[in-house]
Amino acid sequence: MLSIQNLHVSYGPIKVLKGVSLHIDQGEIVALIGANGAGKTTLMSTISGLLRPQSGEIKFEGQDIIKFPPDKIVKLGISLVPEGRQIFAPLTVLENLELGAYLRSKDKKGIKEDLDKIFSIFPKLKERKNQQAGTLSGGEQQMLAIARAFMARPRLLLLDEPSLGLAPMVLELIMDSILELNKEGLTILIVEQNAIKALEISTRGYVLETGRIILQGSSNELKEDPDVIRAYLGKDYEEITER
């Protein structure tokens, strides 16, 4: 569905992505894990057209989208849920969701159907649909951000750090709803510092280290990989002979 080859992205003189290649097949949940500053968010922003890469190739269903503006990429079916949620705080939950469907605002019937679907996956949002989004809890705001992205009827959902700042209980809820959306046929790329959580819900994963992918595999094998466990626990490689 999405294939990326040799993506190079810099912020000024600082190279953030140094030749990243990865792919996502239809129906998969793919996790991209890595430490802070590895380039995870940069990759997400580049896929959604918010950042221009120096070089490389991003193909969505065979079409090269590297020069497309963000709105065109959304129209093609790629939606980003950015880190830190960025919902419209003064607007109500419902208004936020309707804004998510802005690009297809004439499709009243479809929007209604999607809202019903969303409210069944996130009953909390239904309860609070007329409440101002800014008054929601962190977890509810995250749900809203995901739901809003879903309203654009994406085929590929990019989730940037959905676990950020959430209590463990709420996190479980969010993860369950991501699985639920995947069952609805949505393909998902999830970026997480909380590697274990991301690998629990995904089918495959990639490990990004300072702008380069150093490991990939099924989520089950990555979860047990000592490298991943160490990276997650923040240990390093200095003592290679230590046993």
Binding site: Q5, S21, Y206, R212, I213, I214
Partner: peptide, 12 residues
Amino acid sequence: QWHTELLQSVVN
């Protein structure tokens, strides 16, 4: 695609 990814990650 598969081989490009595998090769790059092993070289990295």
